[in-house]
Computed example of a mutant assay.
Amino acid sequence: MILEDLYRLLRAGHVQAQGIVDTLTQPLVVLDQVFCVTNANNAFIDAFKVDRDDILGRSLFSLGNGEWDIADLRTLMAEIIPKTAAVVGYEVTHNFQTIGKRTFLVDARRLVHPDNNSTSILVVFEDVTESNRERAESDIILAETRHRMKNLFSVIRALAMQTQTEGYTAKEYRDAFLGRIDLALRAQEIAPGEASADLSALLDAAVTATGGNRIHIEAGPSTTLPSSKVLPVSMMFHELTTNALKYGALSVPEGRVRLSWRIEESDGLTMLVCEWREEHGPTVRPPVHRGYGTELITATAKHLGGSAEQRFDARGLIANIKLPV
């Protein structure tokens, strides 16, 4: 074999090897013993927005006017590589001038030659910036979901503990409990997370699903409630609606309820005043004992810093609920 034939074989082998390297989709560079770039594939050129002629023969750490002088990358090359034949998945994050902040998993290994005397290092970069971002977003969503589920279960447990059992049949308890759970879910839809809620929408969701069109809501001034008050306020008016269906105006076909609100100033505080007025129902008599509904409404209003008063007028129940806004 003459020298020209040997040269052609070597050149063909080089071209073939270069072709294989360029077909790889992950950015790849080959470094010599002093970490100078001896080869780079097209994926590396495209990923890092560099020119091949500008990087061949130069130290990896001097590329991009020195922006490749990355402490983690130097540690990988100078300390880890000499101690082991390969490193897989070494994470490097850096803010590049041309492509911005990116995170790469770096695989580095010595090139294996038959004489086992290779000093070249093959370095592959896997861009995991987007996958890391998506994973972080998924973790945030999962944590928020767990937090909300925990809160929801706490609400359901509280509803179960507060729903009256004495004198109730199993069916009555079930219906009352499920009604309150349904209300809690509707309140979550009105004000998800930390959002506030429009009072008009809140009252509509709290009473019309149960009382239907026989509850007339007379719109008052535009009022917004913080998320912390959405469920308690919903519970109070749901309780008034339930009692009206059982014992009050809504227990007869001709019965009606008027619900209105206004804003008042009292002792330097801005108060929301809601009035619940039942009409055309059966004759009302004051109860002998304060029932669960009355206790819930009174205690909830007090907890929110306000008050609740119920007047058992013979023509129909009148309830006034005052809350600071």
Rank of each mutant, 00 (worst) to 15 (best):
A158K: 11
D182G: 14
A209Q: 12
R135C: 09
E166P: 02
S120Y: 08
G212V: 04
K150H: 11
T165C: 09
R135Y: 06
S138Q: 12
I215L: 03
T98R: 15
A158E: 12
E194P: 06
D204E: 04
I141N: 15
I140K: 14
K101M: 12
P114T: 08
G100F: 01
F125G: 00
A170C: 08
A206M: 02
A209H: 07
T129R: 04
Y173W: 14
A206K: 01
S227Y: 10
N117D: 06
V155Y: 09
R109T: 02
E218H: 05
T129L: 02
V112K: 11
Q97I: 09
N132P: 06
L122H: 01
P192Q: 05
L199N: 05
N117I: 06
D204M: 03
M161I: 14
L199P: 00
E144K: 10
P114A: 08
Q162F: 04
I217W: 00
Q162P: 03
T129F: 07
L122D: 00
R133W: 12
E189L: 09
T103W: 01
R135E: 15
N132Y: 06
A195R: 09
A195C: 06
L105H: 09
D139R: 15
I140H: 11
E218P: 03
A206V: 03
K101G: 01
I156D: 14
S200I: 05
A219E: 12
Y173R: 05
S200A: 10
M149T: 14
G220Q: 08
D175M: 11
L159Y: 07
P114V: 07
Q97F: 09
